[in-house]
Design a protein around this nucleic acid. Sequence first.
DNA 1: TCGCATATTTAGTTGCGTCTAATTTATGTT
DNA 2: AACATAAATTAGACGCAACTAAATATGCGA
Lengths: 215, 215
Amino acid sequence: MLTRAEEDHLKAVHRLLEDGIASTNAIAERLNTKASSVTVMLQKLTEKGLLNYQPYKGVTLTRKGREQAVALVRKHRLWETFLVERLGFGWDEVHEVAEQLEHIQSSKLVDKLDDFLGHPSFDPHGDPIPGRNGALKVVHFKALAALAVGAKATVAAVGEHSRDFLRFLSEQELGIGAKLQVLGRNAFDGSLSVKTGDGRTIQLSHATAEHILIR
Amino acid sequence: MLTRAEEDHLKAVHRLLEDGIASTNAIAERLNTKASSVTVMLQKLTEKGLLNYQPYKGVTLTRKGREQAVALVRKHRLWETFLVERLGFGWDEVHEVAEQLEHIQSSKLVDKLDDFLGHPSFDPHGDPIPGRNGALKVVHFKALAALAVGAKATVAAVGEHSRDFLRFLSEQELGIGAKLQVLGRNAFDGSLSVKTGDGRTIQLSHATAEHILIR
DNA sequence: TCGCATATTTAGTTGCGTCTAATTTATGTT
DNA sequence: AACATAAATTAGACGCAACTAAATATGCGA
């Protein structure tokens, strides 16, 4: 049985490994702690057989560690789905609460929640929800920023979960499922001119377009 | 903000005060800790203005302490209701999970859960659920053991939440809402002969009958 | 009212998870 | 290849919440 701190570290490692390496500093930043604290936890989790860690050499997940991490992701995303679809939370309000809920210890609860929600495949941010067996479908998202001028697309996910970003998208009617078309690209700063499903034309900065994901 | 340990102690004090005094030992037993640990927590909670505590003289709740304790009871009972009514848990399976869920920090979550459940007045064990404002309707339950021979009644709540007891009641179709009639009382051990709603006649020990509650 | 059993509190220790400060390792520049 | 800088680790300390053991208060029975 893992403690909350252990679960948090495990999840951070898993998340960071998706984008490359999980450096001690990056983990610390994600968890709002210090690198020295992270080192100690990495040692402990290695002790417990969840990580492969060698001082100064970096860290990877063991099979067991990956399973536990994916189970946490599953819980997090199921709870987010519950909060948005059943309780009426906004997609920009659920992260912190789900961060707490994912630590509830009860496999029966997760499975019943999954049943209750009808075995959803994606959470409110478009991220895939791992199955009961731990199977996580790898979905290939493409950034809106990478589309050619003239291309049409449907928003499938977001690459940034900050409250401000999500609220901005909601306000612009650019939530998951929103349809749009790239009208032009500013050669100077890479910003896009985009036509939305409801006919408006808006400007999106390159940074924003990088975080709007298309299937 | 209270830590989990603080919340647990606060709730234990609240619960025990309902039946009289909250002795240090009784609190420790409820929380599976030692009296010495409890003493320290009582001091801390007094420091925080939630308890009135004087060494060797006992403890009571302050107004603020009572509010927080009732808020915890509210959360616990709403979650139990959710688990049973929406997720299909048995009423004998929800206590431990609700014990974890009640510590989730988000007033918005509680209120939305309450809305989602349709503002239930009673939890799956028949206990009243405090309102958003903290109002807890005092319901006067009477033990089945106290009924006169010949009396008819409907099970309204249970005075014992142990898994074994609840399972026994489920098996005998004596859940909340079950109708029954007292056919006779054994003068020797106080056990009751009871006719159930579905026509069976069963024997209930005095201890059991004390924990089946009637409105 | 005294003495003793019991309840409670205090004192001192432990494990966990964090911190800061000091040290060590890795790396990239010249 | 040597060294400066950045990254990571180790060492030592702290707060929290638990523990055990020792001390102290309460209150009941003789």
